[in-house]
């Protein structure tokens, strides 16, 4: 598997304050869905801005598909790495959906017909075709964020980074975004780096990386990470809801395993109840 994104000994600081990122190392394989989990101020959002060089690292190397990110291939990299940010109101440039989706494609100087077909493709991929001529301001948070995703898709990126893209949405909007992202990852084979503080979202990833104070403190499959519950708590992170339910059942004297799968848990509860009666 080729590495889509690679951080090697990357360090960064904002110049003031004591926050810094030291010697960050991780890779995201092509087609993978990797979650970066971390509490506020853990440096996870800085990471998104480093990946497409909105911020410049103080040291170390960042590679996108093997190519070192530098000043000379900046726009090439930004075409390949799309970023969706947190606030749906702060990323739309234009008032009308199709104009906004077109923005990125216009920036890279594509011909008109190509822009038109890319708008169609991007809106279809995000399930927003019906809103092509709608006013952005009238859409719901989840819809605005889907437009932001569409705007990134219009650049046909190979990697998509979601920088807490669901943090400001209601549960329904959150589900809309997660569904779109999962579909892109599974059907379009898009490499996805999902930065989040929701354990539920990390659960959907192939791998998860936990950050705390600018450092990677845990990495592995989501199940492995959530198995280390005590450690997670020290980073101000918690289990997904299903994990908490398991813990509560165990505390109540029911013998269930620490599963993160709803069906497994349901089966175990059913078995316990059958034994009891």
């Amino acid at each position: 598997m080729m590495n889509a994104l690679e951080f090697e000994d990357v360090s960064f600081s904002y110049g003031e304050g004591d926050f810094r990122i030291n010697n960050l190392n991780f890779t995201v394989g092509q087609g993978e869905l990797v979650a970066i989990l971390g509490h506020n101020g853990s440096g996870k959002s800085t990471l998104a801005r480093l990946a497409n060089r909105i911020l410049q690292p103080d040291g170390g190397t960042i590679r996108v598909f093997g190519e070192t990110v530098g000043e000379d291939n900046l726009y090439d990299v930004r075409r390949k790495v799309g970023v969706v940010f947190q606030n749906p109101d702060n990323q739309n440039v234009a008032s009308i959906v199709e104009d906004d989706v077109a923005f990125g494609a216009e920036n890279i100087g594509l011909p008109r017909e190509e822009i038109g077909s890319r708008i169609g493709f991007a809106l279809k991929a995000t399930g927003m075709e019906a809103y092509r001529h709608a006013t952005v301001a009238r859409l719901s948070g989840g819809q605005k964020q889907r437009i932001a995703i569409a705007g990134v898709l219009a650049l046909k990126p190979q990697i998509m980074i979601l920088d807490e893209a669901t943090a400001m949405l209601d549960p329904r909007g959150r589900k809309e975004i997660v569904d779109v992202v999962l579909r892109l990852n599974r059907e379009e084979k898009m490499t996805v780096l999902m930065i989040t503080h929701y354990p539920e979202e990390a659960l959907l990833a192939d791998r998860a990386i936990v950050m705390n104070r600018g450092e990677i403190v845990m990495r592995g499959a989501p199940a492995e990470i959530f198995a280390r519950h005590e450690e997670l708590l020290t980073y101000n992170l918690d289990l997904p809801r299903i994990g908490k339910i398991c813990k509560a059942l165990q505390a109540g004297g029911m013998s269930v395993s620490d599963t993160l799968d709803i069906q497994t848990l349901a089966d175990e509860i059913a078995k316990e109840l059958a034994c009891g009666s």
Binding site: R49, N52, I54, Y75, R78, R79, G82, V83, F85, N90, Q91, V93, E98, D99, A102, F103, G104, A105, E106, N107, I108, G109, L110, P111, R112, I115, G116, I119, A148, G151, V152, L155
Partner: peptide, 18 residues
Amino acid sequence: DAMEARCYMGGKKRTKYK
């Protein structure tokens, strides 16, 4: 940041959809 992430680099080379 969001505009830069979408490859905005001023009016140079830019095309118009409409």
